[in-house]
Design a protein around this nucleic acid. Structure first.
Length: 820
RNA sequence: GCCCGGGUGGCGGAAUCUGGUCAGACGCGAUGCCCUCAAAAGGCAUUGUCCCUUGGGGACAUGUGGGUUCGAAUCCCACCCCGGGUACCA
């Protein structure tokens, strides 16, 4: 086997040189990993330091099986950011942990009987091994896992603080229930009426559950998005999810029963057009208003309908009249009351005023049941939701509806019949789960004292071992009778523990705080440690968390800030969301058999190749398609760089660059500049790597003609620039040529003088079409450029009797002649 | 329906923010050559499409159709297609 190449003087060709070692990642990568581990290279302390602090965080993985290609991508991105920040003089916190609780491990336990802790910890060991094998620059001393009692003790502690402030509360509510997973779901976990996890249509159930009062923070969650640098589409998704609507609450009174029914409307200007009134089937007053069999049947049917069926907007409108009326406060008319399933109990007051002329749903309903449709705004063909002049609205007639809006609200307020109001789509966060493998909720129920929080000094409430994980409609924890039966912390009498566990999103809503002070046994974190690192400067993760995790974490930080436990209002100053990796254009899945296991490629090509390839195939923010063939190309590039380094190290001695400004030196500085800009401005790692490839190609073209010092400098610089993406090879190349450690070197700086040229290629255009290029001094004036361009032979040929009617000169670039 | 993205060679993608060097960096694939007993590996070269007899030259080309401009992949308008988010939220 041979390998490497050296010039043969007679032909100038490169021929095999048996003495040169071939690029062997299996030798290079463990060597550097050992150095980093032995020397604790990536560890950072909380002691003050003159360097600025940077917190670079990648979303923690859910450990299941082994890492997949998405993990390789996201940690490759995060590591590049971390390395670049370090070499620009920052002290970088880059930690790792595991989001270890959750359903997949529990379902696995149901199938196999293996304790979820065992399968989870096996997965963690595999994740940890591979992350180390990838050479990710993690401070391993800060490693955490959410299933560790030393961690979830503080999850419980935070829950209790929430409870004390009324931010965690228990109530009976209609909840979304997944019949397959046998647990409730948060609204956010229901997609198209189906369970986010297993796709089963969800059902409605009336249950007593724990909630976090995230709705109290709706406005702050909206407003503070102005203070963070997040991708606009994520901001939009959160904004839509919160769904703030401004309008008015208007009271419609049922005189017969003497009950006031407020409704929320965003269109108080259409009040005079309200010709009927509709309650949701879940509305508690329905049977009081009318308990006929017809009404009962309708309500029962609506309640058993799946969310998917009911949510279908193309469904024909249905409903039943209640035989009662309410008073339209604007007109004083009695308008009929109905029950209909297009009205939702969860939004607003569970009742709407029906304005068929100016609301498409009300229009469909009125049309279906022959109800009066009364236009109150001149806005086009009915139904219309646009603006226009008011009609049929008493003294507001003739006004523009926007103006009438304000006046009608003012009038309602003065009459005590309504008021300005804001509604949100956002609901409180339902956090109870009737499952085993999660953080126990630290509450007990005592016959005499009722609901009692577990005192702090009795935390953690540890998860007991149980025999049977099968869900039976209540938490499997209920079967652990020794654990359930406890004593009341207040009276010492018999009490029962809460058997629900927390949604795993609770665990991951504060983990970034624990990284700041991961071994603290007396408090969740020391305030000064959190003050030093927070907020996270750059957060990196998948777009799939745009709403759930990112909103919950923001809510937690705001609540903790209100308790004066943290000093920031937002956890993540900047956010980067990376795209998905597909293969052959399809999502990877085990059933399709197109899953790419990073381990296969790391074994075959080395971690540096796998990391560079995944960053090279496209902008990391976009989805990208994995193609096996492409991996070889990246490996070839790294191999070429390595071979060049080995040979240069063997055939020349360290030498400063020539300073002559030759092409290779220029190309080197061009690459420094290009890579630096790509990393600073956005995450253009694909073009940064391409620039190092260009430099490497140039090295091969020039390595026997350029000054030896320039060649060495070019190769060492290529190693230095590729280091954030291929840290092992970068370290090796740099050491071969300089004897120094690349991560201890500052990020290289391009010499501006070498980025500019004395001579430019002047483009000569006729009517915007290029016809010639001429060398020109870069300092030439506009007139000189024009004169030069006029001298072009090709221009003369082109003119052919035509006349130059205008000349456009772009300094340093081109001259364009407009010819007729 | 509404809100975001995005449509560029055989493929992944550059260039789009800030209009300006025959658009296509870099890589894959393909083709040819070199090295080799041979293969692998590697090196060198070519590679948008079409046309002309070559040297060489010409025409066309960034989803479609318009527009602005000396000049448009880039800016504006309309439309088509693909992907994502979201939806009886009153």
């Amino acid at each position: 086997m041979s390998h490497g190449f050296a010039p043969r003087a007679s032909t100038g060709r490169w021929i095999p040189l048996p003495t040169v070692e071939r690029y062997d990642p299996k030798a290079i990568e463990p060597k550097w990993q050992k150095v980093w581990a032995d020397e604790h290279t990536w560890e950072v302390s909380n002691e003050p330091d003159e360097r600025p602090s940077q917190y670079v965080l990648v979303m923690l993985p859910y450990p299941s099986g082994e890492p997949h290609i998405g993990h390789l991508k996201v940690y490759s991105v995060g590591d590049a950011v971390a390395h670049f920040a370090r070499r620009n003089g920052n002290r970088v916190l880059n930690p790792m942990g595991y989001d270890a609780f959750g359903l997949p491990a529990e379902n696995h336990a149901i199938k196999t009987g293996q304790h979820p802790r065992e399968s989870t910890e096996a997965a963690i060991r595999e994740f940890r091994r591979q992350f180390r094998e990838w050479g990710i620059s993690i401070d391993w001393t800060r490693e955490i896992s959410t299933h560790d009692p030393r961690y979830y003790r503080w999850t419980q502690w935070i829950f209790l603080r929430m409870y004390e402030r009324g931010l965690a509360y228990r109530k009976e509510a209609a909840v979304k229930w997944c019949p397959k997973d046998q647990t409730v779901l948060a609204n956010e976990q229901v997609i198209d009426g189906r369970c986010e996890r297993c796709g089963t249509p969800v059902e409605a159930r009336q249950l007593e559950q724990w909630f976090f009062r995230i709705t109290d923070y709706a406005d702050r969650l909206l407003d503070d998005m102005q203070t963070i640098e997040w991708p606009p589409h994520v901001v939009t998704m959160q904004r839509n999810w919160i769904g703030r609507s401004e309008g008015a609450e208007v009271v419609f009174r049922c005189e017969e029963l003497g009950i006031d029914y407020p409704v929320f409307t965003t269109r108080p200007d259409t009040l005079f057009g309200a010709t009927f009134f509709v309650l949701a089937p879940e509305h508690p007053d329905i049977l009081r208003l009318n308990d006929s069999q017809e009404v009962r049947d309708y309500v029962n049917h609506a309640l058993t309908e799946s969310a998917e069926e009911r949510g279908d907007e193309h469904k024909k409108k249905t409903g039943v009249p209640l035989g009662r009326t309410v008073t339209n406060p604007a007109t004083g008319e009695q308008i009929p009351m109905w029950v209909a399933d297009y009205v939702l109990m969860e939004y607003g007051t569970g009742a709407v005023m029906g304005v068929p002329a100016h609301d498409t749903r009300d229009f469909e309903f009125a049309t279906a049941f022959g109800l009066e449709i009364r236009r109150v705004i001149e806005c086009g063909e009915l139904p219309c939701t646009g603006d226009g002049a008011m009609v049929n609205s008493g003294r507001f007639d003739g006004l523009h509806n926007r103006e009438a809006y304000e006046q009608i609200v003012a009038w309602l307020e003065s009459e005590g019949k309504g008021e300005r109001s804001v509604n949100y789509r956002l609901r409180d966060w339902l956090l109870s789960r009737q499952r085993y493998w999660g953080c126990p909720i630290p509450m007990v129920y005592c016959e005499t004292d009722g609901m009692v929080p577990v005192p702090d000094d009795q935390l953690p409430v540890e998860l007991p071992d149980i025999e049977d994980y099968t869900p039976k409609g209540q938490s499997p924890l209920a079967t652990a009778t020794d654990w359930v039966n406890t004593t009341c912390p207040t009276c010492g009498g018999p009490a029962r523990r809460e058997t629900d566990t927390m949604d795993t999103f609770v665990d991951s809503s504060w983990y970034f705080l624990r990284y700041c002070d991961p071994h603290n046994e007396s408090e969740p974190w020391a305030r000064d440690a959190v003050d030093m690192w927070m907020p996270v400067d750059q957060y990196i993760g998948g777009i799939e968390h745009a709403i759930l995790h990112l909103m919950y974490a923001r809510f937690f930080v705001k609540a903790l800030a209100d308790m004066d436990l943290v000093g920031v209002q937002e956890p993540f100053a900047k956010l980067f969301t990376q795209g998905m990796i597909t293969r052959d254009g399809a999502k990877m899945s085990k059933s399709k058999g197109n899953v790419v296991a990073p381990e296969d490629y790391v074994q075959r090509f080395g971690a540096d190749t796998a990391r560079c390839y995944i960053l090279f195939i496209g902008p990391p923010s976009l989805d990208a398609d994995w193609q096996d063939a492409g991996v070889g190309g990246v490996h070839r590039f790294l191999s070429r760089l390595y071979t060049a380094a080995v040979e240069a190290a063997a055939t020349s001695s360290p030498d400063d660059p020539s300073g002559e400004g030759g092409e290779l030196l220029r190309k080197t500085h061009w690459a420094i500049d290009k890579v630096t800009r790509d990393m600073q401005t956005d995450f253009s790692f694909n073009t940064a790597i391409a620039a190092v490839m260009e430099l490497t190609n140039e090295i091969y073209r020039q390595r026997d003609s350029a000054p030896a010092g320039d060649v060495r400098f070019a190769i060492a610089t290529a190693g230095s620039l590729i280091f954030p993406f291929a840290p092992h090879l970068g370290s090796e190349v740099y050491e071969l040529l300089t004897g120094r450690r690349v991560w201890e070197e500052p990020w290289p700086k391009a010499d501006p003088a070498l980025l500019e040229r004395d001579e430019i290629q002047l483009v000569v255009q006729v009517n915007g079409k290029l016809i010639d290029r001429l060398p020109a001094p870069s300092t030439a004036s506009q007139d000189e450029l024009e004169e030069l361009a006029r001298g072009s032979d090709k221009l003369a040929a082109r003119l052919d009797g035509g006349e130059i009617v205008k000349t456009v000169v772009v300094p340093g670039k081109l001259v364009n002649f407009v010819v007729r």
